[in-house]
């Protein structure tokens, strides 16, 4: 059955359907052709095909029984050491089904695997190297400890280019009977960069309003995902109303499940819409950069956000 979600419905199922990442596809196709793939690390931004190619590998290797030989774990949701010790080991230690020489474990969003879990994995990878291959997918390869990186072939995925994005849009439009203006292609590219998941979701949401996709519609729909309160948080802070500003900030973050980094991105954009001196905007932006840096190094994202708005409070 076709999924109701377009991103799923139009996800490539073979190497030939993949758009972009030509070099990577070529090399992996060769591995699969020889029925032998190494442990792999896929690094790159969101929505450029890391998970998709892993699923394609499984389909090409195992045919219809791919689900039995393929374990997909999302490390953002199950990231503790227990998962490594139980789920992964249980799957890895049994033999593959059919004539496949090994099973595959995909650890999606491995950035969020704890260090302990990663340490526990390096042994598991070696112990079951006969029966199992690992694919790690990450945004930043630096989050993966060296001993694991050294056991993997590393593939760096690039953001999709405008022509790739255009091809994907044309493809979806043909199947879903959409009318997409040229200006809309630019709008989608500007809003999503090369993130195809975002792109598919925005397109589908637009289509639920109107099959004629205009750039105005796209901008409107895309803005749904941005919290409306960012401007209020900022203006409260500038007025010196620290407590109100921080309470609103905390509520928005908890309500929408936003991280400190998500929030600082929004704030940094919104600063330029404020009615204040440009020099002040510049210094506020620099402050955002400093706090984002501290957030990466530090331990408490919300405390760092408070530091940011407190610095906006001072006159």
């Amino acid at each position: 059955m076709d999924s109701s979600i377009w991103v799923e419905r139009h996800r490539p199922k073979t190497f030939d359907e993949m758009v972009g990442q030509k070099e990577i596809v070529k090399r992996i196709k060769a591995f699969v052709g020889h029925k032998n793939v190494p442990n792999m690390l896929f690094a790159g931004p969101a929505g450029v095909g890391k998970t998709t190619i892993a699923l394609v590998i499984a389909r090409e290797l195992y045919g219809d029984s791919w689900r039995e030989n393929f374990l997909e774990l999302n490390a953002s949701d199950d990231r503790g050491i227990d998962v490594v010790r139980n789920t992964i080991k249980d799957f890895a230690r049994t033999k593959s089904i059919g004539d496949a020489p090994f099973k595959i474990i995909l650890l999606d969003e491995s950035d969020s695997l704890t260090r302990d879990a990663q340490q526990a994995l390096r042994r598991t990878m070696e112990q079951y190297s006969n029966s199992c291959r690992f694919i790690f997918s990450v945004n930043y390869s630096s989050k993966i400890i060296d001993p694991i990186q050294s056991r993997c072939s590393v593939f760096r995925f690039r953001p999709l280019e405008k022509n790739d994005v255009r091809e994907i849009i044309t493809n979806i439009a043909k199947h879903e009977k959409l009318r997409v203006e040229e200006k809309s292609v630019y709008a989608l590219f500007e809003l999503c960069g090369g993130d195809v998941r975002r792109l598919g979701n925005i397109l589908q949401s637009c289509a639920s309003v109107d099959k004629h996709i205009t750039s105005e519609l796209i901008y409107k729909v895309a803005s749904y995902a941005d919290p409306k309160e960012v401007r209020d948080i900022l203006s409260l802070a500038i007025k010196g109303e620290f407590i109100k500003s921080r309470d609103l900030l905390l509520n928005v973050m908890l309500r929408d499940g936003l991280s400190g980094i998500d929030m600082i991105k929004q704030i940094q954009k919104e600063i330029w819409n404020l009615q204040i001196d440009d020099i002040k905007k510049l210094s506020m932006t620099e402050r955002c950069g400093e706090i984002e840096f501290r957030m990466v190094e530090g331990s408490d994202e919300f405390l760092q956000m408070e530091g940011l708005i407190a610095s906006f409070c001072k006159k």
Partner: peptide
Amino acid sequence: GGITHASLKKSFKEFIF
């Protein structure tokens, strides 16, 4: 997230779509 191969967190953020 289960059917779109994404984490709970990611789908939660994109829930509006």
